[in-house]
Simulated assay, not measured.
Amino acid sequence: MYCECSPVWDGKDDLFDVGSLDDLGLLPNLRRISGAQDCGPGVRFKEGILAARGIAFD
């Protein structure tokens, strides 16, 4: 999926690391986050914020 957004991304930078959940409103159809333990470098997802928007994660 990352290759669709940035075809030449080599994974060696933080281009796709989530820094905050402030922009969740831009993803109105997001219902599940799967396969991710955290937002980026060790920052855990805030389950309360995700749950309030009906987003499950595992």
Rank of each mutant, 00 (worst) to 15 (best):
C39K: 06
D22R: 05
W9L: 05
I33A: 14
L15V: 14
G11H: 09
M1T: 06
C3Q: 12
L50H: 09
E47T: 06
G40S: 06
G40W: 02
V43W: 06
D13A: 00
G35A: 01
I55P: 08
V18F: 13
A51L: 02
L27Y: 15
G19L: 06
V8C: 04
Q37F: 04
G40E: 00
A56M: 07
P41N: 13
S6C: 14
E47A: 09
M1A: 08
D14C: 01
R32Q: 05
W9G: 04
I33N: 13
D22L: 14
L30E: 15
F57H: 11
D23A: 14
L26V: 03
S20W: 03
S34P: 00
D23P: 04
I33D: 09
D17R: 09
R53K: 15
L21H: 08
S20I: 00
V43K: 13
P7Y: 08
L50G: 06
G54T: 02
Y2K: 01
K46F: 13
L30A: 08
L30S: 07
K12W: 03
G35T: 10
D13P: 00
V18K: 02
C39G: 09
I55W: 12
G25E: 12
R53P: 04
E4H: 02
E47Q: 14
D13E: 08
N29G: 13
G35R: 01
Y2E: 00
L30R: 13
W9Q: 06
I33K: 14
M1C: 00
G19N: 12
A51W: 06
G19E: 15
W9T: 05
V8T: 07
L27M: 14
C39S: 13
L27K: 12
A56N: 01
R44Q: 04
D17T: 10
Y2W: 02
Q37L: 12
L50S: 11
F57G: 00
E47V: 15
V43G: 06
